[in-house]
Amino acid sequence: MIVAERKPFEEIKAMIEGCKKVLIVGCGECVSVCMAGGEKEVQILASQLRLAFEEEGKKLEAGETTLERQCDKEYLEEIKDKVDDYDAVISMACGAGVQFLAEMYDSKPVYPALNTQFIGVAEREGEWSERCRACSDCVLAETGGICPVAICPKGLLNGPCGGTNDGKCELSKEKDCAWTLIYNRLDKLGKLDNIRKIFPAKKYSVQTTPGRRIHEAFKEKE
C-alpha cells in the first residue's frame, strides 16, 4: 500500500489562512490503513483546526467526509454538490488522490494534508516499511523476493557496498543491509548463482514520466 504521514499541523493551518469554510476529505484506502488520512484522521484534523481558529478569535467551518478512495473519479464525484459550499478543500489522500481531486474540482483550491512517503507493508500495528519504488522493471525473481532498489538506499544491483556493518546498512544501525538479506535468502534457497552474474544497468527509459498504462482490453476505446 501507499504509506503517508500527516503534515505538521502548522503547515496545514497556514495553507487555509483566510478561509472560513473548508471541506476535509479523507480516503478510505491505503492512508486509512496507515492511520494518516482516514475517517478518524479527518475528524482529528477538523477539530484541531476549529480549535486553533477559535483560539485566534476566528471561526472555521470544517466539513468532514471520507470517500471510498480518491484515485477513482466515481468516488470523487460523490462530493460534487458539497464542494461549492466551501472556500477550499483539504485532501487527506496520497499525492495521487490530491491531484485527482484537484483536477476534478479545478476552480477550488485543493490542499494536501499528507506527505506521501512510499509503497510499503505493515510490519506490525503502527509500523510500516518501504518495499517497492515502482521501478517498472522488477528484479525480485532474481533477488529472492527482496528489492535492492527500494531497500538498499543506493539501489545497488550488483552486491553490497563496503558500508555493511554487522549486516546493517551504513545509513543506520536500525536498518538491515538489503544485500545481506538478499544473500542470506538466496543462500537458503540454494540460488546464489542468481546474483553471481552481473546485472545490467537499470533501464530508466522504462520508467516513463509521467507514467501511463492502458489495459489491453481497453486500448481500442481510447
Binding site: 550488483n158 563496503g162 555493511t164 554487522d166 549486516g167 545481506t180 538478499i182 544473500y183 553471481r196
Partner: peptide, 23 residues
C-alpha cells in the same frame, strides 16, 4: 576497485569482489 576484507558478513562482499574482477 576496492574490497573490504573485514566486512561483516564477508560472503556478499566477496561475491561482489569476484564480480569486480570479472568486470
Amino acid at each position: 576497485a576496492i574490497v573490504t576484507p573485514e566486512a561483516n558478513p564477508i560472503e556478499p562482499q566477496l561475491l561482489k569482489f569476484e564480480k569486480k574482477i570479472k568486470a
